[in-house]
Structure formats: C-alpha cells, structure tokens
Design a protein around this nucleic acid. Sequence first.
RNA 1: GCGGAUGUGGUGAAAUUGGUAGACACGCUAGACUUAGGAUCUAGUGCCGUGAGGUGUGAAGGUUCGAGUCCUUUCAUCCGCACCA
Length: 920
Amino acid sequence: MAYKFFDIEKKWQSYWAANKTFKSQINSEKEKFYVLDMFPYPSGAGLHVGHPLGYIASDIFSRYKRLQNFEVLHPMGYDSFGLPAEQYAIQTGQHPDITTKENITRYRQQLDRIGFSFDWDREVRTSEKNYYKWTQTIFISIFNSWYNTEANKATPIDELLLLFAASGTENVKAQCSEELTFTANEWNSKSAEQQYETLLNYRMAYLSESEVNWCPELGTVLANDEVKNGVSERGGFPVEQKKMKQWSLRITAYADRLINDLDGIDWPESIKEIQKNWIGKSQGALVNFAVKDHADKIEVFTTRPDTIFGVSFMVVAPEHELVQKITTTDQKAAVKEYIEVTSKRSERDRMSDVKHISGAFTGAYAIHPFSGIEIPIWIGDYVLAHYGTGAIMAVPAGDQRDWSFATHFKLPIPNIFEEADLSEGAVEGKDAVVCNSDFLNGLKAKKAISLAIYELEKAGVGTKKINFKLRDAGFSRQRYWGEPIPVYFKNDLPYVLDAKELPLELPEVDKYLPTKNGEPPLARAKNWTTKEGHPLETNTMPGWAGSSWYYLRYMDPNNTTELFSQEAVNYYKQVDLYLGGAEHATGHLLYVRFWTKFLNDLGMIPFNEPAKKLINQGMIQGVSKFVYRLDGTNTFVSKGLIGDRKVASIHADVSFVTGDVLDTEAFKNWRVEYANAEFELENGAYICGSEVEKMSKSKYNVVNPDELIERYGADALRLHEMFLGPIEMHKPWNTKGIDGVSRFLRKLWALYHNDTEEFSVSDEAPSKAALKVLHKTIKAIQDDMDRYSFNTTVSHLMICVNELSSLKCNHRAILSELVVLAACHAPHIAEELWSQLGNDTSVSYATFPKFNPEVLVESSHSYPVSFNGKMRFKLELPIGMDAKAVEEKLLCLPEAQKWLDGKAPKKIIYVNKKIINVVL
RNA sequence: GCGGAUGUGGUGAAAUUGGUAGACACGCUAGACUUAGGAUCUAGUGCCGUGAGGUGUGAAGGUUCGAGUCCUUUCAUCCGCACCA
C-alpha cells in the first residue's frame, strides 16, 4: 500500500471524532496539563496559513504531554461577539447570530482537516446565552464588590455597608471615584436610596461620564484603534469626542498587583515590559500651590519634588477646571482663543505634534509653598488633563519640556544644580547636586526627594503619591452584538438584575444602528425593561468581557448552576501553556489577569494568574506579488525592464505566480480589465516584484491551508509550518519548502514498507547503530520539546529517518518507538503505522520512548584538532585519555608536524570529549 | 526620544553551558533511471582561489588557548510606547 495521505487522514480524523479520543476528564490518578490557544474570532474570511501556526504548536505540545501520561486539557472555542459581524449586519440586515454561526461552521471544517486534538465537547462560544449568562454573573459580582486598599483585595459590598453603619468612612480605605467622609450617624440617617447612591461611589463597576469617539456619519461609536488622525479608519469621516455615561471597572485598584505578579510568571520579557509601561507606575508627590487672591489651590503631581526650588512657572491643561476661575480680565481673550484652538485638535493630534510649543498666560499667580515667591500660571497643551492632576510645576532647569516652554516664551530659567550649563537644555539626570534650594542644598536627587516629601508633609502642603498611567477599564459599548449589561435603572440609579433573571438575552431589533437621538441599538428593542417596567441598560459589554474568563469555563463548560465547579477548577487550575499573538499585550492579557485576580479575591479560584507560561507565536506574513503597468496603457512590464518608465504597481494574486514568474494567462482571466493586457517579457517570462506584507485578502497574498492539505496532506502542513522557524518569530510564508517535509513523510512510510509497498518489519534484534540513532533522536526531541523548539524537532525526525534509511533498518523494536516520536507532529501517518504495527489503541496514548544513555556511550571521540583556534584535522582518540598521552600522540602525527612548521607548541589545550587546541 | 526584539549562505534556518559555524530543508549544478518529469536515486554546493590555502555569523574594538555565543561602541530593520510631569 502506498502512502495515501488523503485516505489515512480522513480515516483517523473520523476515528478520533467517533471515539472521542481527546476527551479530557478529571482524573485524580494523573497529573493535569492545560494547554490553551487564544480562541479565534470567527471572521468571514476563514483561516489562512498564518492562523493555525500557534494551534499546531500547541497541539504538538498537547500530544507530547499525553504521551508523558498527563491528563491534558486542550480545548477550543470562539470569541464570537465582535464588530465585523455587526458591521455586516448593518450593511445586509442579516442577524449577526446567523453569520457568526456560518463562520464558525466554516472554521470548524478547516480546523478539523488539520488534525487537532481538541476536546470539542468543551467548546465555548462567547455569544451563546449559556456562556454569556455567566459573563453577566461575573459583572454582577464586580458590581457587588468594593476594593479594600488596606487588605489589598476585592471584597463583597455588604461588608462595606456594615463598616459604614458602624463607623462611617473612618476605618474604610477603599478605591472609589470620589473621596467622601461621613460618620456612622450621618450614614445611618440617610434614606435607603441615599445610602445606595453613596455606595455606587465604591463599587468596582461604576457609571461615569466619559468621552467616546462618536462618528455621526457612520452613526456609531468607534474604538480608539478605529480612529486614525481624527477621522474614522473606515470611510474617513470626522469623529467627535462625545460625553456619555459609561460603565467602567476599577482595574486601577489592581495596578500594583498587575505589575508585581509579573515576576512570578514565565511570560516573554517584551510582554511584561509592555504591560509595565502601560500601567505606568511613577512615584512622586502631590504638591499644593496656593493661587494668589483666590481660595483655590492648584494641585500638581511631580516625580521630582527635589527640584521644587527651581519652579519658575506653572502650567495647567487647557481643560483644567480652574482655568476659567483664575484667568484675569486682560488675559481672558488670549486664553479663550488658545482654548478654542487646542480643543479643535484631538488628543491624538496633540500627541503626534510634540515639537510645536504653544500656550497662554492666565494672568494669575501661584505662591511657592516654601519660598512664597509668586509664580505665573500658564496654560499649555503639553500638559494633559487626564494624567496626574492636569497641572504641573514647571522646572525648566530640570525638565526638557519645561525648558523648551520657558525658552519659547522667554520665561526665567533659574538654576538649581551645581555646575550646570542650562544654555542648551535642562539637566534631567539624577546625579546632579542640588543648589539654590534652601534645605535641599548639597544633596543628590535620591536623598533630596525624600527630604522634600518629608518637608512638604510637615508643612501640610503635599503628600507622597504613587501615580499610574493605567486608567479604569471602559466597559460600555454602544453596540448591538455584545453581552447585554444586566442592569436596570430606577430613579436614575443603576441596579443589577437578580441572578435568576439571567441570562439577560440580547433582544431583537429592527436595525443594528443607534437611534436618532444617538442611543445604542438596544434602545430600539421593544419592551427593553424589567417586568416591573424599569428601563434596562442599553449599552453592551466590550469584546474583551467574554475572553477574560473563558479559560475557566473550559474546565466545566456545561455547568448549568455555576460558572464552574470547585472540583474542576481545583483540578485543572491555571493554564500551563498559553499560546497566542503578542498584539493582545495590553488588551486581553491585562484584562484576563485582572478578572483572574478578582475571582481569586472572592475565593472562587485558587490562583491569581491565568497562565504560568505564555508563548507569543510570530505572525506569518504574506509575500505579495506585484505587476507593473505602464502609466496610461494596458501594458505590463516585467520587473527588470521598467527602467525610468512610470509604472503603477498592482497586486497580483499569489496563486498566479510561481517563484517570480507570472502565469500571464491566469492573470488575464482574473479580471475583465486585464483581459486584453499586453506583456513585455524578459527572457520569455514576466518577472514580478515581491514584498513582505501582512497576509490579507486585500493584498491578494493569502495562502489557504485547505489547498495545501489537498496537495500535500495535513501532516505535511503541520510539519512545514513548524519547520519554517522558531515559533515566536515573524516570518514570511513560503510554500516551496513543503516538498521537503512531504518527502520526509514518504521516507518515513518507506521504512515500514518494502519495495512492493507491503507492510514489512523485522522482529530481529536491531543493530547497535540503529539503536544509537533512535536514542540520539529521543534525547534530541525531548530536549527540543521541553524548550518549545518545534522547528528543530522536525529536523531531528528527518535526520533520524535519513539515518535509519541508510542503515536499511526495518526492525520493529526501532520503528515502533519512532512512530511514537513522530506522533505529535504527524499524527495521522503515525496512527496508521501504529495500527499496521498491530496496535489496536490510538498512538495518542502510547508512552513516549524512554531515553537510554547507555546506548550512546562511546569509547572514542573524533577530536577536532585546532592550531591557534583554527580547525585543521580530526583525530580519533579513546575517551578519557591522559593529557600527556594525547600530546605525545598528537605531536608525532605528520599532519601535526605540517602545522607546527618546526615550531614548538607553547601550550596544548585538551578538553575531554570536546576539542584539542595547539597554541603556537 | 524611550523601551524591546532581530541581524548567520542564493532562501528558511541550526549551533541548549564559550569548544569542528552553516546541521536539517528549499533552491541550484552535474550524473543515473526514464517516452515523459513538478517522480526517484547518487554526488556536489558559504565566499575568494585551478591549487595549496585564505576568508567568513550587520560593523568596529575587547576578554579568551578558543567567540555566532561574553563585554564595549556602533549601524540597520521590525515592534511597542510616546509631551506621563
């Protein structure tokens, strides 16, 4: 029987499905291992060869762990709420649920053909009500919690009620929207509704006015990454900032823990770094500056309180609430004009145009807290309203931005550092010695900072403060295709639904667009109220809600009474290996850590990080092909013949191109406008240009895995994707090399079959040489697997098969171990050979071959002999030979004499089993 | 500007602790078998050189008997952040 991959793959895929081969169950006899892929959003375009890369790697690892007798949990599902389905619905009127289901069916078919070992009984879909019911439940838990900053954990809101009733705010340290102070008496004299309203200030899910990107033309709210340079990415329509009541979650309460716990997890350094930057912790002080002739104070945040005597002006953000109050009459016009100009620029514009210095003087003065000197207060857009306090004390001697501002507006630059030259710029380092600074003179930054804070606190004008860039997570989307937020309003106050009312199902609407007055699509639903008639929340949850806990639901996906059972979560625990793209560094990977910590605080799970180990698989890029049309003609010029002529480069579909050569007939048949195309050929061929770009439909560089599977088989695709290079690197797709792995599979098959294609293995004892090859491979593959080096595992399998082929080895003892070694990578052919070897169970649960080091023990070693570090010849010597004996033996050799060239060696380095180096 | 990653043949890459650079594969060259080849097999293939030999891991220094690997400086590409006080 020849190697017919098509039949073999179909046969075993049906076998696995029929026998539920990869079903995972809680098994106290076995240690668990949880391998998770970031689940996909099922887009309408289907899979291209880049998508399965990570799935193949994780599948290989799952299979490896099964062979090592772990109880492997390896599930898959769909992140099925999302914008594209909704956009499609807006355009076509098709319900997103229908298109989503169609897309999922297509995805599933494509996934199934690759031979993954998923436990499909555990599939989850975030858009199914039996899943989002529990997403809503978690939201309610968050709403019903407050963050105790003293205990440093989320706590049920009921406890806060008791604290307020007993002692008011006195002993309460809580993360809240607004610092409130009241006594127990004051609390207890409030009405129930007043108490409820006050409590909203402390809940971990809260409503607040915040800005959204509203695009009137599209009639929808856009995410930040859908807005490019102030206009919508799609369509290029203007986008406005609009204030809306939005739900937010207090992720900022976890800022410190989100940074600190990074130390305990094995994630790529780059991801950790990105998360740290995103959270943006900075330590410093809050300082109050009194405003001359006003009762108000300006509060600033600074990381350099040591430079406080260098303050020569203040800058507040144009949006700062005090600006209107303190601006003097003569400056009113200038300030008004400046605010108008800046308000037209979006935050993004302001950020992208950093060099341009602008500002206006308010006419008001602040009083220096120590020296009492009057300091002019300016407004300037380099101070951002949302960071810190929206105001700074400007120290031009110590901060380059302040220096530039001062220079531009000819403000004084008082020196506060010894031996400083301030003519070219500020002194930003922390090594300068402070001077002209009263009690701080003679100190360097480190000591001066703590002394300055001490003095500020003593004088009652400042406090130590840790500031974070991280903002609370917006949790409202003015969209249809998302989880409804289980909230209703009574007297304008938000209340969560009772658990028994869940799931709050997504209602039917006539259109997937906002209403005329800009309310979200859910406002179109009929009777969108509770039974009592209270209006329901019309926002839906953001895309990241469902994905923030899906890894937990996989552990117990069909539980109808709770999120997951304690039994399941205590058995499967954290994800051991998580694979997915690095683009989720500050989104999903931060939110999933946040929810994990929250659920841990409430005692629902026994761990506080979702995944022990994270690997970011690299992106597979497309190689786009270009043809060049002479301007104003229908003539296409081969790349080498363009010269100085003006041409337009046009993407040609990669399927028309072999190597660099275009199939001109296929190109002409592609589109009507190319039917009469003419070609200028070089050496009889049309040569295309190429460029590495993102793999995408619009660039006509998509390679579809289905076609490759048809031609080469799933095993070949799996091997080829791994063989492309290290899993975490970006790399352009290259179909060409797939012939190599395809040849390998046929060679592997040939080891088990004779010239007439009949299965034929020998039961005789294998040769020493063959055993050596096998055990060398066992060791290599095991080592490679343990460091996730999947590309080299493929090479080692190839080397093994090549060597066994040249040894003409067909011994059962060797081949039945080899088939297990190959089973993770090429499971279909492995199952077939395993069954031909006479096994009646799946190779998936075989035992990974045990490495026997004794087989590899050598009595001699072929030493490379170097002279001055350059390898000249080899010398076979017994292992463990005495250095002196080696030296004597070596120097007698004619080869050595030649390189010694009559000189006596200065030194001879001899490292057992490694090398000999002669120093001349 | 700051932070991170990556630079090795014609191509994808390998070299786990410093110890034979280029394994494995694609491609290419030559040969065999063949009616045919996008099949298979054999041999070769970093570069320069007919050769002996020289040279070679982005560049330049350094440490070492020995450096792709360690240190310093530098260049290029990619990614992330970006007036963060």
